[in-house]
Structures are given as structure tokens and as C-alpha cells.
Design a protein around this nucleic acid. Structure first.
Lengths: 258, 258
DNA sequence: GAGTGGTCTAGACCACCTT
DNA sequence: AGGTGGTCTAGACCACTCA
């Protein structure tokens, strides 16, 4: 499959027909990972070393690495190198357990950092969600979550100050839902969840150790109490390779004829 | 930000500092889409035309397009061109409505093609799921789903022939769950769903009009009846830019002290 | 057959991480 | 200071689509 300038090498073998060179290199690295020659967390040889061992142009090597990154097998640390990715964390949006709890259940080590807490006027869209007037104050909490020391998720949580006055003065590294329940009597009875693959903006990507455009999964959670009030509005930006969604549903009774 | 060979152009303006050229081009195209100058479904200028208008090397143009593709704003048709992507379809895994129904609810036009139907021996993993012996026969149905004529999803459904004898002789373009219920008395009471971003293999990508490595979302659905038997095992490979997941959950009663 | 995207080469300079 | 990945150039040939 080699193309471009004639390098004097023989034409591709029959079994290589139709398989681009970058995928062949991808396969080689993927095999090294599967076979354990490259362990989870291990650093790959540098692009220039891979280039020399292929041999191939550096762009071709980067194409192979980008492919492995899209598959979630490897990730990069900006200007540091490429690393074998650990297995993803399983996330069940129907469960009440907070991040810390369900990561621990999977024998991984969770971490949390509160990046910022502020009061800010609601944008039009936010006001709509909380059924407030645009410009009304909202608590905003930005948090970073890690698994085994690796940042996997950035979230921004919005809370109506009227429902949870003084919330920002609390320690916010633990379960916010728990605080809202015990301190403010806000019990969540309904969750609306939206998920979609996305590309992360420069800020978010940088916090997760990546570059603008890093593939991500956006999880938006809107939590309601029994009176239908929005108690918590949470936007979580995950690294796409760090998460796996799992839902277990018992089907509700169907209306007659359904 | 221009780098590499000196092209005689002036250094980057202050507001461009730190913003790579490919992102600037991305922004320009994204603005054209937002502003409606490029409508949904419209074809973008060719890479070589974009290159001439930027101006930039073709690799840089392709980087900008790949970024937009990752964000779901544009997609490509192999060797045909780049196109503005339509809005994604919303998918609610908790609802019983089949693909055709919920696509229609969103005022889009669904389509279905049965690609293949066969009986094949269960692999080890499949046997495990169905609690059968490895090598036991399983019905396999491959289907392609389209929205507004565009392929968005390839699925393979496995069914235990003992539970639904003769299933393959039926018309399979409609709701399989419906057939299993009305013809075979199999009522699904529990769904286990797994979702994760993935890269699509060459076959799947080709069926969705893409190249190997196309970004996708894998949705695995395991359906059980009241006796806990696996009635249906379905692996859906979606184009990542064609789907948005939405779940609305009423929280179950908590155990005391929860 | 003209034009498209897909793959590839062989360089270069830069910002930043690591030591 | 040396090495890394990030960005960019300027070409090339190929497989395929489309009119």
C-alpha cells in the first residue's frame, strides 16, 4: 500500500492489499497492548522512534496513534508522550451512588478537586431550566474528577441559591446530592439525563490533560424534587475513553394494548 | 501562528496568538454553518478549494475538517465530499417504541434494510450470554437503519432459536420485539443496556458510508423475559454524530438509611 | 475523464515537558 | 538542554465517485 515518492521498496504483499499502512501500524501496537508487552499506563515509544521502526513518515505514525486514541486504547499527555489507557469506569446514571462510591466499587481510586465556586447571573437558557428570570443569581460549582490520579471528567453544577442558601460555604468535594438532602431537605425523585459524544473545548480539554477537540462524552443531568423544582443541574464532560455507560431497567407496566 | 517554511507573510496578529490555524479555519466554517450560509446537508467546498481560500496546506485543511467531524458538525462521504450534518436523533433506551416509531416522532424519515439473516454457532461469549453451550445455534439478524436516507446505525441481533422457532422466515424490517411478543409470547420485562464511544471497524464503517475508524457509539441491549431468559441480544453501532441519548428516570424508593 | 477524498513522504519550526 | 508532541508546508500517487 505504500504510496507517494518511490522509496525503492517492493510493492505491497498480497495480504496487505487494501489495508493502509497506518492501520497496519495500529494493529502492531494494538497487539503489543493486548499481549501485555505494553502494560496499562505504560508509555509508548516516541513518534520518531516508531517512525524509525515502522519505517514510515511521522504523519503516518500519528495517524495510527490517532486511530488508537479514537478506539480508547491509548491517550496522550500534551508534549509528554503517548500512554496505554486504563480500562474505563462504568457509570450507571440510574444509581444514586456518587462518583466517589462507584469508582471505589470498581477497585479504582477516585479523586475530586473543586476548581471554582461562584454566584453568577443565569443565562437565558439556564433561567429557562430553573424557571427563574434571566440574570437571577445561580450557584456555580466547577469540579474535576480523577480516577487513579488521571483526570477523567470536568463538571459544572448549577444550584438555585433560594433552595440551598449558603451552599458554597460547604466542603464540596463529596456528594452534593447528599448535602442537598441532609442540609436542605431537598430529595431528588426524578432525573433527566442527556448524553452525547462531543469534542471538548480548549479549556475543558486542557483540564483533562488534552488539546482542543479531544473526544468527549457530555452527560447532562437535571434533578427534580417531588414538587418538580430543579434541584441540581449538572453538565459533566468526560474523556470519551474513560467512561462506559451501563443501565439496568425493569420495564414498567405497559398501558393496555401497548 | 503560521509555522514551517517562511512564506513571506507577516507574523500572526495578537488575537491569533495561541490559536492554531486549523482551528481558525474550523471557526470560519462553523460560523458559515451557524449562520446558515451552509445549510444542513449542503456540500462544503472541496479540500483543494478550501486550501486555496485559506490559504493553507491541504493537511491543515483536513485537520480543520476532522475537528468539525469530531464535533458532529460535518461528515464525509468517501471520495465524494464533505457535508453539513443534520441534527442528531434522540434515543431513549427506556422506551419501548421501536426505531421507526421514535424517528417518526421527531419528524424524520426512518428506513430499514435487513442485510443478512443466518443461523450460526454461538461463540464462547455469546453462549455465556444466552446460557447455552458454545457452538449451539443462534439466529443472527443484521440490519441497517437510516434517517432521512442517511445510514446511521448497523445492528446485529441474536435470538435463541428455541425461544422463537422460525423467526428468520418472517419479515424483519419492523419491530423485532413486537414479533417476539405477538408470535412467540416473549414479553420483555428487563433491559440491560451498555453504551460506549468506539471506533467502527472497516465493515461497519463502510456500511455507514465511512472509513475504518469512524467514530461511533456502541449500544448493547440485552433483553430478558420474566423467567430471566435472554430473549434478544442486540449490538447497535451508531454513527457518533447521529445519536443523542435521553433518559428520564423516576427514582425508585430508597432502602432505609439510603 | 475530471475531480474528489485517502494515503503517504520528507522535511521544518515551535511550545512545552522532563531531567 | 534535550526530547517530546503540535503544527505546518508542499508536494505525490492512488482508488473511487460522479457526470
Amino acid at each position: 500500500m505504500r504510496q507517494g515518492l518511490d522509496t525503492g521498496r517492493p510493492p505491497a504483499a498480497a495480504d496487505d492489499v487494501g489495508r493502509p499502512q497506518y492501520l497496519a501500524l495500529r494493529d502492531r501496537i494494538a497487539r503489543d497492548i493486548d499481549a501485555g508487552r505494553l502494560a496499562s499506563g505504560a508509555r509508548l515509544p516516541s513518534e520518531r522512534h516508531l517512525q524509525a521502526s515502522a519505517p514510515a513518515a511521522r504523519g503516518t505514525v500519528r495517524q495510527a496513534l490517532a486511530q488508537l486514541e479514537a478506539e480508547g486504547l491509548v491517550h496522550r499527555r500534551d508534549r509528554s508522550g503517548w500512554y496505554v489507557s486504563p480500562p474505563p469506569v462504568t457509570y450507571d446514571p440510574t444509581r444514586r451512588a456518587g462518583f466517589m462510591a462507584y469508582v471505589r466499587e470498581q477497585k479504582r481510586t477516585p479523586g475530586a478537586v473543586t476548581l471554582a465556586r461562584s454566584v453568577r447571573p443565569a443565562t437565558e437558557a439556564q433561567a429557562d431550566i430553573f424557571r427563574l428570570a434571566p440574570g437571577a443569581p445561580l450557584y456555580a460549582i466547577d469540579r474535576l474528577r480523577t480516577v487513579d490520579g488521571r483526570p477523567v471528567l470536568v463538571e459544572r453544577i448549577l444550584v438555585d441559591p433560594d433552595l440551598a442558601p449558603g451552599l458554597l460555604d460547604r466542603s464540596l468535594d463529596g456528594s452534593l446530592t447528599e448535602i442537598l438532602k441532609t442540609d436542605h431537605g431537598l430529595v431528588i425523585v426524578r432525573n433527566r439525563i442527556d448524553m452525547r459524544p462531543c469534542a471538548l473545548d480548549a479549556d475543558t480539554a486542557a483540564r483533562l490533560g488534552g488539546r482542543p477537540g479531544l473526544a468527549g462524552l457530555l452527560v447532562v443531568r437535571t434533578s427534580f424534587d417531588a414538587q418538580g423544582r430543579v434541584v441540581e443541574y449538572d453538565r459533566e464532560y468526560w474523556r470519551h475513553d474513560a467512561i462506559r455507560i451501563h443501565v439496568d431497567l425493569t420495564v414498567r407496566a405497559e398501558p393496555a394494548g401497548g
